[in-house]
Design a protein around this nucleic acid. Structure first.
Lengths: 196, 196
DNA sequence: TTGTTGATTGACTAATCAATCAATAAAGGT
DNA sequence: ACCTTTATTGATTGATTAGTCAATCAACAA
């Protein structure tokens, strides 16, 4: 039984994982290719061989996080019946254990900041924002008028980001359930006004 | 009439302003001391002379932003009568024109990210967080039970940060009034439940 | 076996940049 | 005028680091 995935794919995954680890651990994108490569157990030249440059490696790391998040969402969506449940599923997915732990949150924050100076990073984050907001809006349209749905989705998106931001800088880790409860409460309050 | 402020203070202010400008314009803390010094019209050696090192200069820039924000808050607080007005004043101050424009918001985001790796920056942000939350909680305690006040203040703080974060990455600038309306609505919704 | 392709590396390069320092200029007091 | 202190700079250094390249090494097909 030979490995189903090629050696190249294996190495790329290891490098992406190592990049994520270094970035989260050091809390900055100012990590050297050599550090990442060492953590992945290869030479820095190999990282360049597979990814071209440091920026490409970091972009690939962002894409990986994004894909993971997407998986989380579709998984949660699958078992959701009705618009309100789909709304809750989207919120719950945003705080899934895969995303909402310190290392990942730190990485997200560094990526957000990077987006200010990297068009590629900005593009990826815009895609993520659009997707999240689209999910929220779609679910909300089943409960509230379209205009209200869009407004509430915008607020929820900002709130989710805000909770992440606070968590990134908080010395004591927050329980994901508490974060979910905060956002759920906001959604319920907003909806109680538009669906009497 | 000789200048009331010494030459040293003048130069420091120029350097801090230049640092803020460079950081906001480039969207990153990876600006060179030489770039900052050139923008301030002095040599890079002088920046070191006055601030010691690059990190100290950037920390001073953060402190400057923080102090400006504080001024904004006390100013808005001064003309506020009663707890609900104080709550609104705090929110309004958070989105004052001095704070809520693109350059400043970009700088904030880079500082937030820096706090992940710089204890000094983390300390400053914690002070800012505590101050904001304390202001919010204090005002809210005049309207809601203490426990609820703390919970709502926590949510408001996160929401304000989230709105900032969205604005930092948004290609189109948001109207401060719209941001204030979003947060005000959040506060009103929360309060409508605890004060029947 | 042998040749081809891809994997992998150590060594090197070129660029960047924070920080230092010795030297000069300006200011201000006596 | 003289001396002390402070302001200011150009030149330099030492460290770091992304990216390159030619040289091995491993896999594997013919």
């Amino acid at each position: 039984m030979s490995p189903r995935i090629g050696k190249a794919e294996l190495r790329k995954r290891a490098l992406i994982g190592a990049a994520l680890g270094e970035i989260a651990e050091r809390g900055t994108l100012e990590v050297t290719v050599a550090q990442i490569a060492r953590r992945a157990g290869v030479s820095s030249a190999l990282a360049h061989h597979y990814f071209g440059g440091k920026d490409d490696l970091i972009l690939a790391t962002m894409r990986h996080l994004l894909a993971e998040f997407r998986l989380n969402v579709v998984g949660a969506m699958h078992e959701a019946e009705g618009p309100r449940a789909r709304l809750s599923a989207t919120i719950r997915a945003s705080f899934g254990p895969e995303q909402f732990h310190h290392a990942t949150i730190s990485a997200w924050l560094t990526f957000y900041a990077w987006a200010l100076s990297s068009p590629g990073a900005a593009r990826l984050l815009r895609i993520y924002h659009r997707r999240l907001e689209s999910n929220l809006t779609h679910a909300l349209k089943g409960i509230a008028p379209a205009a209200e749905a869009r407004r509430i989705a915008c607020g929820l998106g900002a709130y989710i980001d805000g909770v992440y931001l606070r968590e990134a800088l908080s010395p004591t880790p927050t329980d994901p359930a508490a974060a979910i409860a905060m956002v759920e409460r906001f959604a319920t309050l907003e909806l109680s006004e538009v669906t009497p």
